[in-house]
């Protein structure tokens, strides 16, 4: 059993992951050399704007990249000692949902409207776990109670349209944890929720994580979610991780100009900001990246070298790395 393992062991290790898409404009390097590791009980935040490759990273981890046009061209994804990229499609479907699970952003579209929520929650249990038919309902109710669905006994037969948005998101969470995975990926799980419902949901995820020492990956564009939830952060820009570090490293000492700019462009709840920093321009098109640093065109500190060569990752402190020539 997983619980017997040491609490801080690395459960997921991603190394040099490259996912490319072939399009008529050329090869789109949606994820280009992404590496990170994740320990048990830890929360990693992957932060970036739309199009930076954070969702493709997540889909690659689940091996759900539509192929063609997409392809994982390089890299290793080690989940509890096995390389997911070496598995056959059959073997992968055994892993998916049971060892690594996913909570998608929009509960309106990720739940099937013609099945009751009970049958959607226990689908994964039926597929992955060998338990007798009569105890399936019991198991389903237990999972629904875990995500704080009130009156689970009567809710289990409800259909998605009978639930509110926050409730639906809980059901999606229940599907995610139904088989007690070791890694749970949450892709912007709260963007469609109201603030008070968002707070409830984030607290729920934290509680679930503590109960089962779950490793969480939070994909988000919101630094507030990161500040509240994450232990470590990876900031992505144009398909690459530009900075990684502990959550305090990132907030106290942002070392990549993109991270610095992003943090300065967010209004603060606790204090007055005279004027927000606005990053000029737009993120680059991924099929036509410049040879050097992809942030060079928007960077206030740009140097000649930035346009010629992609910067290596420099160590800022023991737990903190950033890919910027200023640190050379």
């Amino acid at each position: 059993m997983t619980l017997a393992n040491s609490p801080n062991e690395v459960v997921l290790e991603v190394e040099n992951l490259c996912t490319y898409f072939s399009t008529r404009w050329g090869t789109v390097k949606a994820v280009d050399g992404v590496s990170f590791e994740l320990r048990r009980g830890e929360t990693l935040g992957i932060v970036g704007e739309s199009g930076c490759g954070k969702s493709v990273t997540m889909l690659s981890l689940m091996r759900l990249i539509p192929s063609p046009p997409g392809e994982i061209v390089n890299g290793r994804i080690m989940l509890e000692g096995q390389d997911l990229l070496q598995l056959s499609e059959n073997e992968m479907s055994k892993v998916r949902g049971s060892q690594i699970a996913l909570i998608i952003q929009d509960p309106m579209t990720s739940l099937n409207p013609v099945f009751s929520i009970g049958s959607q929650v226990n689908e994964a249990i039926r597929i992955h776990q060998d338990i007798p038919k009569r105890s399936i309902l019991e198991h389903t109710l237990e999972v629904l109670r875990k995500v704080n669905i009130p009156a689970a006994e009567s809710r289990v037969k409800d259909y998605p349209h009978q639930l509110s948005g926050g409730m639906r998101q809980r059901v999606v969470g229940a599907i995610g944890i139904s088989c007690e995975p070791s890694v749970l990926i949450a892709d912007e799980p709260t963007t469609s929720l109201d603030v008070t419902i968002q707070a409830q949901y984030l607290k729920l995820l934290k509680d679930l994580q503590q109960q089962s020492n779950l490793a969480l990956i939070f994909i988000t564009h919101d630094f507030g979610v990161v500040a509240k939830m994450c232990d470590r952060v990876a900031v992505m820009y144009a398909g690459k991780v530009v900075e990684t570090g502990g959550v305090r490293d990132i907030f106290n000492n942002p070392s990549h100009p993109y991270t610095e700019a992003l943090l300065a462009s967010v209004p603060k709840l606790e204090e007055d900001v005279e004027r927000l920093y606005a990053i000029e321009g737009q993120p680059p098109a991924l099929h036509d990246l410049p040879p050097g640093c992809s942030f060079a065109d928007r960077c206030p500190y740009v140097m000649e070298r930035c346009r010629e060569e992609y910067p290596a990752a420099f160590q800022v402190s023991e737990s903190h790395q950033a890919a910027c020539w200023r640190l050379a």
Binding site: V195, T196, Q198, A199, Q200, K203, D222, F223, G224, V225, V226, A227, K228, C230, V247, R248, F251, V266, K268, L269, E270, E271
Partner: peptide, 19 residues
């Protein structure tokens, strides 16, 4: 609402009024 809003820094302590 204020306590449910997300903090701008991990060290900011918020009141725990979760509705």
């Amino acid at each position: 609402l204020m306590s449910a809003a997300l903090p701008s820094h991990p060290d900011i302590e918020q009141d725990e009024i979760i509705l």
